[in-house]
Computed example of a mutant assay.
Amino acid sequence: MIGFSSFNKTPETTLAAQACIDKIRNLAQQYTAGFSSPLYTMIDIANRLERDPGTARHIWVIRSNNQSQIDSCHPRINAWPLRFSPAARASEKPLLYLTSSATSAELCALSNESAHRGILCNDIETLPSRWPKGAHPWVSIWLAANPQCLPFDPASGAEAHAIALAALQSLYVEGNDGFYYMALHDEPNDFIAPISQLSASQALKGMYKLNEIDTDAGQPRIRLLGAGLALQSVVSAAQILRDDWGVESELWSCPSYTRLARDADKAQRWNRMHPHMPRRSSHLLDCLSADDCPVVAVTGYAQHVADQIGAHIQSRFVALGADSTETPPGKSLDKRWIVVLALRALAEEGAIAQTRVEQAIGRYLLQ
């Protein structure tokens, strides 16, 4: 059996990453002010980095999918040649892997192939499939359970842009271990406002607020959390709740429920082991511990992905995923179910009458 080592991190690795960061950062306005999708954003970033003579020699781009090919005589379709190349192993460069992988077995093979390094972008959600988000149900389990993987489900091109920059900084400038994963969809992000620098920073921690509501208006309030393409359904549900039921919704985009849960778990463990020290908080608690307003967390994956944060939510919590209702493959979560579950949570808190939940179920024919 042929043996080989992992890629070596050198000063040249940092210089290569910084060249890519500078190039991508200059494109920020294109993604933050416009309405580009996560898929378009990452393909455009890959194409620009490869076509620019100033960055082409500083990055490895692997294209194992069919949507992102550019004109090239020698396109890289896997990372194994890099593993066997003495020159490549001598000094690591940033690795951007564009793939269409539907199973955890495929993703496990890709992560081994790339030495558990790089930015792995999966566009399987854009292709026909019998599974929600185009991914086998074990994929979300593998992503959440893999300590080497930091998974994200960006809702917009701006979020994908911010995540790509953070991954380059963390992996190749700071030299941290592991790899980043992004699930990419191709729907434009015209359902949320352009992202600010502060929001981008908070998005990398797992969640950021999309709107402000009047807490003194006396209307029932709910917090709605959404990730990836499911955020569109969440925003639509908020509009229905306001127009039809007089409920105000505090909206949050959650690019990574897994990162939120890991951060909260880490803080909880530290507090248990250091009972006499000042307690540590987490980004999740910093965002959601202000009051006891109910929280509904929505994901296009199975419900367990959003459920990861449930143990740390201090108010009433409801998780909703593709397996929570009869969501057809390739379809977004039904916004009507989000409305009904939000009303039910408010009814259980005594904020509205239970009859309103029954009215909503009958109105939307969700028997």
Results as ranks from 00 to 15, higher is better:
Tyr301Glu: 00
Tyr172His: 09
Ser201Val: 00
Lys93Gly: 11
Ala28Thr: 03
Arg76Gly: 01
His304Ile: 08
Ile240Ala: 13
Gln202Phe: 12
Leu333Asn: 03
Ala167Pro: 08
Ser233Arg: 05
Leu120Ser: 10
Pro255Asn: 05
Leu320Glu: 04
Phe7Lys: 12
Ala351Glu: 07
Ala290Trp: 06
Tyr301His: 15
Ala79Lys: 13
Asp291Ser: 00
Asp22Ile: 10
Tyr364Val: 14
Arg223Gly: 04
Gln359Ile: 09
Met277Trp: 09
Ala319Tyr: 08
Asn78Asp: 07
Ala297His: 04
Lys93Asp: 10
Phe179Gly: 11
Ser196Ile: 02
Cys149Ala: 11
Val173Tyr: 10
Ala144Leu: 07
Leu231Gly: 03
Arg316Gly: 05
Gly206Thr: 03
Glu248Ala: 01
Thr13Val: 13
Pro328Asn: 09
Tyr97Val: 13
Leu204Asp: 00
Ser281Phe: 02
Ala347Thr: 03
Ser236Lys: 15
Lys331His: 07
Leu165Phe: 11
Trp142Ser: 14
Arg57Phe: 13
Asp214Cys: 01
Leu241Pro: 07
Ala56Gly: 02
Phe317Cys: 14
Met277Tyr: 05
His116Ser: 11
Met277His: 02
Ala33Arg: 11
Gln18Lys: 15
Ala290Ile: 07
Ile195Trp: 08
Met207Arg: 07
Ala87Phe: 05
Arg117Phe: 15
Ala238Ser: 13
Gly310Phe: 06
Leu82Glu: 10
Val298Pro: 05
Val296Leu: 15
Cys73Ser: 10
Val318Phe: 15
Ala347Cys: 11
